[in-house]
Write a protein that binds this DNA or RNA. Structure first.
Lengths: 278, 278
DNA sequence: GCGTCTCCATACCCCCAGGGTATGAGCCGT
DNA sequence: ACGGCTCATACCCTGGGGGTATGGAGACGC
């Protein structure tokens, strides 16, 4: 099973149409039909049900569609990781969303610079949904992720710190004067909360703008507190789900630079834990 | 990057010798050299350092060697899973070591048979190290694994029950009369324990034979207690690391039969938890 | 019910990529 | 310096992957 064949099958499985799949692949339809037939012969399994008016995947075809996607992802990751490893002097690409480092990054970068295995660090500031994908695809080496909001399957990870939540809201809001709130206070509120109800807002500026306008209340990790606009107030949510800031990297990575980065991060996080007021 | 090329590179990376790698691959040496050169040109990266007396992998080559192994594993898994899905009526292959089901299997199989999504269940009784590999390669659909002794990366899993440990020993042993022991009692003992010091013993019969002879003390999950030879005594280890029996399956599996099996297992495990004396 | 349209399979051809053999080139060790 | 080991190069050849043209099997309209 060559990757080309798997890519062909993946295209057919997605389009459910040989002609369109062939067009997308940049080849003619007959070679594509033959390639799929050959794949079926070699596996000894029917992958596509061609009897109906529209073609459909057999159960085996469904399985192969998922497996093929995994293989193609692995191949793409292999390419980017290999190329990155071969270019010039090594660098470490760290993916995070703005403010998503739990306040650890300044101290971490300073401490990491002094480590014997340290290399140059590139920061990839990106949207929420991008970070895990970047690491999976090899564009980034390691990412700051937030449990339990993000899926850690396929990653090794190191928890750095556990943070409570604060509710970010307009000063005009009726809860703005409170020393703390509970989830129930927010649930009863007419203004919607985030990120539960608005997962599509990935941009902090947009989020804060909406909060200022009283359109929503955002529950964010407490470390974000220092970066919010001055015209917003933050009120701790006592019973909010705590967020764990973790460093995540692909399983099986063997890189001294990465190991040093993770180790340094753990040290820095521990040190900060004893000085939480900073 | 075709899988053939990756297999070629993996062979070279393993043998560190073009001639032997070519022999292993069943091709001549020149085509292999060319294939690797082509790979390097396409990636724009040097993979192999040919300057020394023995060839060596560059850092990029090291990366690709690991990534290629992942891809080839994924391809092999894709083939076996697809073929299994296409053969006749579906079956569910459950991998476990003898006695490794925490006593859940009889009740689980009986309850599963009644489930609407149930299919025939094949039991693959295999050695300790085989189970995870079988699921990873697609030979089995799901396995009983034991945390924290086995690596769950790449799997989704469902914990079923937590078990304490019992020390299995000859009746002649000085601790055999005790109602319970602590780790310290065993650590001070001249006879070695298992599995910590003897991971190579994967066969329960061998293990028990050695225990009978007083050559070792085996610390095993308490559910194994019912299956040990009658000429052995089991003494609870109060402060032993608890073993969690989990069901593990490949991430991303979509199978009603498997979902039903896992769900049933959870139910059965819960029910058993309320009747621990059974 | 027949023509037509759509869509996949088949037939046939071409060409290049991948494989083989022979041989050269570089690097040791003696 | 020379022979041996090992990888690269040169050259040829074949198979298979890709192209075009066309057939055949349902689905739909009238």
């Amino acid at each position: 099973m060559e990757t080309r064949e798997l890519a062909y099958f993946a295209a057919v499985a997605e389009e459910l149409h040989f002609g369109r799949a062939a067009e997308r692949l940049g080849i003619a339809q007959p070679p594509l039909s033959r390639a799929i037939q050959k794949l079926e012969r070699r596996l000894g399994v029917t992958l596509i049900d061609r009897s109906g008016p529209r073609i459909a995947l057999t159960p085996a075809g469904e399985v192969l569609a998922r497996e093929a996607a995994k293989v193609l992802d692995a191949v793409a990751a292999a390419r980017t990781r290999t190329q990155r490893a071969g270019r010039a002097e090594p660098r470490l690409v760290v993916a995070l969303k703005p403010g998503g480092d739990g306040g650890l990054l300044p101290g971490l970068l300073a401490a990491y610079r002094g480590h014997p295995d340290a290399v140059e660090v590139d920061l990839a500031l990106c949207a929420v949904s991008e970070r895990a994908r970047m690491v999976r695809e090899g564009t980034a080496d390691v990412a700051f992720l937030h449990c339990p909001y993000e899926d850690l399957t396929g990653f090794d990870s190191q928890p750095l710190r556990v943070e409570g939540g604060v509710a970010m809201m307009s000063p005009a809001h009726r809860l703005a004067g409170r020393a703390f709130v509970h989830r129930a206070d927010l649930a009863a509120d007419p203004t919607p909360c985030w990120p539960e109800q608005h997962p599509e807002i990935s941009d902090p500026a947009t989020l804060m703008q909406l909060a200022v306008l009283g359109r929503l209340i955002a529950v964010v990790p407490e470390s974000v507190r220092d970066h919010v606009r001055r015209d917003l107030v933050c009120v701790p949510v006592l019973d909010g789900t705590p967020t764990t800031v973790v460093l995540a990297w692909p399983v099986g990575t063997r890189s001294r630079a990465l190991a040093a980065f993770v180790h340094t991060a753990t040290m820095v996080a521990e040190r900060l834990a004893y000085m939480p007021s900073s």
